[in-house]
Design a protein around this nucleic acid. Sequence first.
DNA 1: TATGAATGAGCTTTCATTCAT
DNA 2: CATGAATGAAAGCTCATTCAT
Lengths: 209, 209, 209, 209
Amino acid sequence: MCYNQSMNERFFEMKKEKQDRMLNGIMKIFAIHGYQKASTEDIVKAAGVSKGLLFHYFESKAGAYCFAYEYSARFLSMQLEKNISHTEADLFRAMRKVEDAKYVALKKYPYMQKFLLSIETVTDMEILKAVEEYRDLVPNVLQDVLQRIDYGRLTDDANGPVLTRTIEYITRGIMDCTLADRMDADGFHAEIVAFLDMMAAKFTRPEYL
Amino acid sequence: MCYNQSMNERFFEMKKEKQDRMLNGIMKIFAIHGYQKASTEDIVKAAGVSKGLLFHYFESKAGAYCFAYEYSARFLSMQLEKNISHTEADLFRAMRKVEDAKYVALKKYPYMQKFLLSIETVTDMEILKAVEEYRDLVPNVLQDVLQRIDYGRLTDDANGPVLTRTIEYITRGIMDCTLADRMDADGFHAEIVAFLDMMAAKFTRPEYL
Amino acid sequence: MCYNQSMNERFFEMKKEKQDRMLNGIMKIFAIHGYQKASTEDIVKAAGVSKGLLFHYFESKAGAYCFAYEYSARFLSMQLEKNISHTEADLFRAMRKVEDAKYVALKKYPYMQKFLLSIETVTDMEILKAVEEYRDLVPNVLQDVLQRIDYGRLTDDANGPVLTRTIEYITRGIMDCTLADRMDADGFHAEIVAFLDMMAAKFTRPEYL
Amino acid sequence: MCYNQSMNERFFEMKKEKQDRMLNGIMKIFAIHGYQKASTEDIVKAAGVSKGLLFHYFESKAGAYCFAYEYSARFLSMQLEKNISHTEADLFRAMRKVEDAKYVALKKYPYMQKFLLSIETVTDMEILKAVEEYRDLVPNVLQDVLQRIDYGRLTDDANGPVLTRTIEYITRGIMDCTLADRMDADGFHAEIVAFLDMMAAKFTRPEYL
DNA sequence: TATGAATGAGCTTTCATTCAT
DNA sequence: CATGAATGAAAGCTCATTCAT
């Protein structure tokens, strides 16, 4: 295993502000450089702590990654679960709720979403196994949302599942672009909202608008 | 830039057999370990050449990657272009043609497909920029094929675009499984064909079978 | 110097139970891993105290080592001095007395003997100089005992000095074996006694038995 | 295991001069500082090679140690075996032959003897297991020599075995003193010879002188 | 052209020691 | 007195790249 229970305990006994500084440092560097190229040097600089401390809490670079991954997957899925409506049948309003919930998370942990995607750069089997159970946490919540959608509310020329996927890919695309220059939850959210509004206007049957 | 014209010339003056040994070594190691974790040591061992020779032809690890990427993208897209029918309107027969063409390519370069996907593990902007123009080569050919499909030939409950994407994901899934244990173009092809046959029987309108 | 008088005073003002817990922790880890590889982390864990406290009392790892070394050498030599007979002329009965005295010491400080031998793993000149005057304490007591032995009590085929050395090496050999699995003063003592009884029966002239 | 066959092969393909430079660098640093405190940095500086090369040939610090240990034990025992007389019955002449043989070895590898003793500073079980079979090589040769000694040639007050051990301890003592300041095979040999001559004159029966 | 020994900067990791609480 | 989080220098080791042959 890459990390263990005792690490968690020690970590969560720190001041919340420092916890977040370390988590954000970890997420940022892994998000930007991918797992392998991310250096512990850069992480501790970003977090504003010493090299030793990173290893005091996480034992290894892999341990830090796994810890942050579990934390991020849990945090983001809980954030979504808590804030989305569980009865919303309108695709665009549901998606908007999702993006609003993400927005709150990204205000606190700007690199969280991108960091979660960095798992694709990981080739170390140890790590992949360690985070396996958390990889579906966020997708599962989104799945739940989509199951409650009434696609009958869409216009005839709209294909629900396709629209959903499209939204997903667009989201990802915007994220990559946004991240390319600078991390900004506000800009990201604004882009998504603009896109959803545009789509909603075009694909929702008039009576449901 | 990661590599230049003179490299190409020198490389293609080697005996064909050695060219392919080097290309396969490069593809294999990058495909298995991702860009960063792939070591030049492993590559030259897999290719059966010396370390010096790799750098003689490609100047750097990044150069080897870019060269192999361009080669692979060009080779696979040409292979597809050449062998697929440009008038096939039946989704399943078209996909079958695609897979047959891939099969021929994978007989020669078993790791080519997986190698092309390894671009997702690359974080180095230099490399991403260098291969940018080749990333769409294969997807574009597939796009062309799909544009000629007559989705009217599918049963009512079949959703063409979804089916297409499903096929893509299934293809990728089978590939990952196949690669997990051993590289085998035959096994891979057999799996895909079985899947397509099954789907065709279920989703094509009787009059088009 | 590695440690000074004020350390002693402070240390001996602690509750006796805690003193021994710290001493045993120090002895155990140095005995098992040798000087260099012994980590302060392991020592404080074994002693059940905090890292800070170790340095509060001993200032440095080297200081802890030297303090424990002086303590052990003094303690064991006094223990021997106190319990052995100063008139015993019989080799085997004398050695038995020595082992009985050691037994009492090892009940309290199981790793003391092995710890004293760990000086062989020390390469730091500072430490070697600091403990120089204590290295002969225990050997000197044994020397004293041996000087009073009447080797005439041994059978003709017995060689006194050789027997003595043999006993020393056997003692050390048994100790290493005992320590290999678990620390146990009782088992250790039983082995030694059995060995001495066997030897006494074979090498003592009948009239002295 | 700490090292393997392929390492040996590669190493012995180097120029002899460089092999010896590396071996002497390894022996020197381990001999002086003991296993743990010896740094690879110091070793490569002493050997006049780069850090990478050390790991190219030996894979790890432990590997370098084990390799040099096997080499030293084999080399010294062969050197002794080859040069000592196998029929010499006189203790002092036999010991003198041994020291002359050692002298030749130490001219080439000045730290070899001290290096072999550094095994006592090793606490890593992996290493101890790896060199286990070589630890007795040199002692066994000396054992063989001693078995042919005719102790009847000694004066009545001389105790053969004790003399032998004494010689061994004196040898070791002189070595430690010699090494303390500077490594010098000549000075070492001169000391030993002087000691042996003195002892021979005192303890050999006149008719055997 | 072809080799692989050689390099050294830079990586991850360790650990004795300090210090705010 | 007691804690353990925090430090950072230094360790062991990796690996893309160079170069003499």
